[in-house]
Design a protein around this nucleic acid. Structure first.
Length: 473
RNA sequence: CGCGGGAUAGAGCAGUUGGCAGCUCGCCAGGCCCAUAACCUGGAGGUCACCGGUUCGAAUCCGGUUCCCGCAACCA
């Protein structure tokens, strides 16, 4: 019987084009999905788009289109990432999908039935930029410190609230019983501290007459759900919850997110799950951010890196390689075009590409037939696994590149191009070719396209030299 | 004392449970010449931010200090 493995990314909010940080997140999730498929597990991999809320409603108004049209445009752009980033997701959920809307309403009803939803008068200052209410202590000079150029709006209305405060002890118990619940450890510490400091119930609805772009609250046509409540439920809705077979088979699952999402994923959502009577997530991975030249990416600084343009210029393998290999997933990492090109030249062109070329060439020129098979090296496999078990994609790739270096050294030592005896040459090249084929095998989750190409080349009866896979830049 | 992260070769970074300080680029010298001006070998270059402690032994653990950064700019 196959193990079930469910993994989901967060759903990016569709108010701008795909961010390189989200690209890193979804590619890491893709690696875990592909790796688990390779291990023989039955995998369900989810991503999608978060499409409700005031910010989107207003953006659409400004552009003179309906909110749905506005979202459709972005959703198409994000869907295209499947090809652009070579992703293997099984479902792409949009929070405007009919099945999501129905399930989100069902989720609401369950929380309500459990006594965790109540109505109260709500008078608070609200920052449209954050889509969040602000307490007086959070404001600086009466303005949101995050969006100082936007006016704080006063909202006074009856809202529904979620009794987050009911879940403080249960969340702390969850963290205590599952010390690996949040990876890395320091993020678990952070969320534990936050929950310990006390939880305030949060508002989960908005008046429809003011902000119609949301999912109707069950049994109250005057309200729509607050975007966070609706969006978080996608992680089970995508599995067909409440009835779907997939839900029974795959939940609970792995969740990955950027560090800005720690609170939502590991505390708010977990409390919501408990309230609805569902099991908490299996584990939450919290990734670091990507800076650009040591600074936060910002349009005004002009240092925003567009992952799609990067792929168009350098190819998807180069982009996946950099994001997976040159960054420590759980810490902030820096991107510059210089580092990117250096990594490309050193590791893909001179390293992987060159080894594949020189080996194939030597075999072809000598007209040698060799006998090798996929994944023949159990030590190699074990070393990769050790790193994958702790989600260190960078170190797993370092293991793979160690095998490349070892093969280059071996070739230089043996110098088969000086040998006369065909049998002797064959013995050397068979070892190296076997290494290359194993490298390709372990590369499949990381650089699927390239790995397939190498595998195809090296499983021919007569291996011959191909065109360079990575021309130097 | 809001919560976290960080300081390691000229630059950029890694360093898991304490055990001879590593990687890439750059620099110097050599080799090879099968391969994409690539590949291999050797070398120079370190007060592991600072002070103290634990230990046979600390980049690593503990306490303190200084300086950066994120949470918290349009954002994942």
């Amino acid at each position: 019987m196959k193990n079930k493995y469910y993994i989901t990314t967060t759903l990016p909010y569709v108010n701008s084009s795909p961010h390189i940080g989200f690209a890193a997140e979804v590619i890491r999730a893709d690696v875990l999905a592909r790796y688990n498929r390779q291990l023989g597990n039955d995998v369900f991999f989810n991503t999608g788009t978060d499409e409700h809320g005031l910010k989107i409603f207003r953006n659409a108004e400004e552009q003179g289109v309906t909110a749905q049209e506005y979202c459709d445009g972005f959703a198409a752009e994000f869907t295209k990432l499947k090809e652009t980033l070579n992703l293997s997701f099984d479902n792409f959920i949009r929070t405007t999908d009919e099945y999501h809307i129905k399930a989100a309403q069902e989720f609401w009803k369950r929380c309500e039935a459990n006594g965790d939803i109540y109505k109260k008068n709500y008078k608070v200052k609200y920052c449209v930029g954050c889509e969040l209410e602000k307490t007086e202590s959070e404001l600086v000079d009466g303005k949101c410190p995050v969006h100082p150029n936007q006016e704080i709006e006063e909202i006074e209305e009856e809202n529904y609230f979620f009794r987050w405060s009911n879940y403080q002890e249960k969340l702390l118990k969850l963290y205590k019983d599952n010390p690996d619940f949040v990876i890395p450890k320091h993020r678990l510490t952070e969320i534990k501290n936050f929950v310990e400091s006390g939880l305030n119930d949060f508002s989960i609805s908005r008046l429809k007459e003011k902000m119609p772009w949301g999912i109707s609250v069950p049994g109250d046509e005057d309200h729509v759900m607050y975007v966070w409540f609706d969006a978080l439920t996608n992680y089970v809705n995508t599995l067909g919850w409440p009835e779907g077979e997939n839900f029974k088979n795959f939940w609970p699952g792995m969740q990955v997110a950027g560090k800005d999402n720690l609170r939502q994923q590991s505390a708010m959502w977990q409390a919501m799950l408990m309230s609805a009577g569902l099991a908490p997530s299996e584990q939450v991975l919290i990734f670091g951010f990507i800076t650009s030249g040591g600074q936060k990416m910002s349009k005004s600084l002009g240092n925003v890196i567009n992952p799609i343009e990067l792929v168009e210029k350098y190819g998807i393998a180069a982009v996946r390689y950099f994001l997976l290999s040159e960054l420590v997933p759980f810490e902030d990492g820096d991107f510059t075009i210089e580092k990117f090109e250096e990594a490309y030249n050193v590791n893909l062109a001179n390293g992987l590409g060159n080894l594949v070329s020189r080996t194939a060439n030597l075999i072809g020129k000598n007209e040698i037939e060799i006998d090798i098979k996929e994944n023949s090296d159990k030590d190699f496999e074990g070393n990769v696994k050790k790193k994958m078990d702790i989600y260190r994609f960078d170190e797993a790739m370092r293991v793979i590149w160690g095998k490349i270096k070892e093969s280059d050294e071996f070739l230089s030592n043996k110098a088969p191009w000086k040998m006369e005896d065909k049998q002797e040459i064959k013995e050397v090249l068979e070892i190296v070719a076997q290494n290359v084929l194993n490298i390709a095998y372990h590369l499949k989750p990381f650089l699927p396209g390239i790995a397939e190409k190498i595998t195809e080349q090296y499983t021919q009866k007569q291996i011959t030299k191909g065109d360079p896979m990575f021309p130097r830049v």
